[in-house]
C-alpha cells in the first residue's frame, strides 16, 4: 500500500509534468526535496536529543511507575480476563504509561512482553488473537500522548511562533479516538463472544 502511494505520487507527478511541459522541474524538485529532508532531520536532532534526554531522566526517576498507579484501576476494568497480579497486567500498565509519556523506545519492549504474557493466558487457538490482546492493541494504537515531542520539534524547526499550541488539540483528538477504539472493542468482543472458540 505504501509502495503504491509512493510510486503513484512519483509517476503521476512525472506524467503531469510532461503534459504541463514542466519536465525539467522534476529533476530540480527531486534533488531539492532530498536536500530539504536532510536539512530538516539535522535540525530535528537538537530537539529530539534534548527531549529524549529529559524523558530518560523521567524514566529513571520513576515517572512511569508513578503514572502506572493512576493507570492501574482503568486497566483492571478493561482487561477482565487478566488476573490483577499476573505479569501480563504489569507489562500492559507499564506499556500504556510509557505511551502516555511518549516514550516509544520504552513502550515497545514492554508491549512485546505484554503480548508474550497474554499469549500464555490465551486459552483458545494460539494463532488467534484473544479478547485481551485485541483490547491491548486497540489501546496501544490510540493511546493518549501528553507531549507529541516529534511534532513539536518539527514546528520549532520550522520557526513556529507557538510550537506547543497543538498539544491541547492533539490530546482532545486522541482522547476521542481512544474512547471510540475502546467502545468498538467492547462491542466487537460481545459480537465475537457468541461464537467463541468453537
Amino acid at each position: 500500500m505504501v509502495n503504491i502511494i509512493w510510486m503513484g505520487m512519483l509517476l503521476i507527478g512525472m506524467i503531469v509534468a510532461a503534459i504541463n511541459g514542466k519536465i525539467d522541474a522534476v529533476t530540480t524538485a527531486a534533488l531539492k526535496g532530498a536536500q530539504a529532508a536532510v536539512d530538516f532531520a539535522l535540525g530535528l536532532i537538537a530537539i529530539m536529543a534534548f527531549w529524549l534526554g529529559i524523558m530518560k531522566v523521567a524514566e529513571e526517576a520513576g515517572l512511569i511507575r508513578l503514572l502506572s498507579r493512576v493507570v492501574k484501576p482503568v486497566t483492571a476494568f478493561l482487561f477482565p480476563s487478566v488476573p490483577r497480579d499476573h505479569p501480563a497486567m504489569g507489562a500492559i500498565i507499564m506499556n500504556l504509561s510509557a505511551n502516555i509519556l511518549g516514550l516509544g523506545n520504552a513502550a515497545t519492549p514492554m508491549g512485546l512482553i505484554a503480548m508474550k504474557e497474554l499469549q500464555k493466558l490465551n486459552r483458545g487457538d494460539p494463532q488467534k488473537a484473544s479478547d485481551a490482546m485485541c483490547t491491548f492493541l486497540a489501546l496501544n494504537t490510540s493511546c493518549i500522548t501528553v507531549i507529541p515531542a516529534t511534532v513539536i520539534g518539527i514546528r520549532i524547526k520550522a520557526g513556529s511562533v507557538n510550537p506547543t499550541e497543538i498539544v491541547g488539540t492533539t490530546i482532545f483528538a486522541t482522547a476521542c479516538g481512544m474512547a471510540v477504539g475502546v467502545t468498538v472493542d467492547r462491542i466487537m468482543r460481545r459480537i465475537y463472544g457468541y461464537r467463541k472458540w468453537r
Binding site: 509512493w6 512525472m14 514542466k22 536532532i45 527531549w51
Partner: peptide, 27 residues
C-alpha cells in the same frame, strides 16, 4: 534522540522527494 532523528532521514528523503515532484509538476 540523536539516533532517532538520524533514523528518520531515509523516510524523510523518500517522502520529500515524492511530494516535491508531485508538487512541482502541478499534480
Amino acid at each position: 534522540g540523536f539516533t532517532t532523528a538520524i533514523k528518520t532521514i531515509p523516510f524523510l528523503v523518500a517522502m520529500f522527494v515524492a511530494i516535491s515532484v508531485f508538487r512541482a509538476s502541478g499534480a
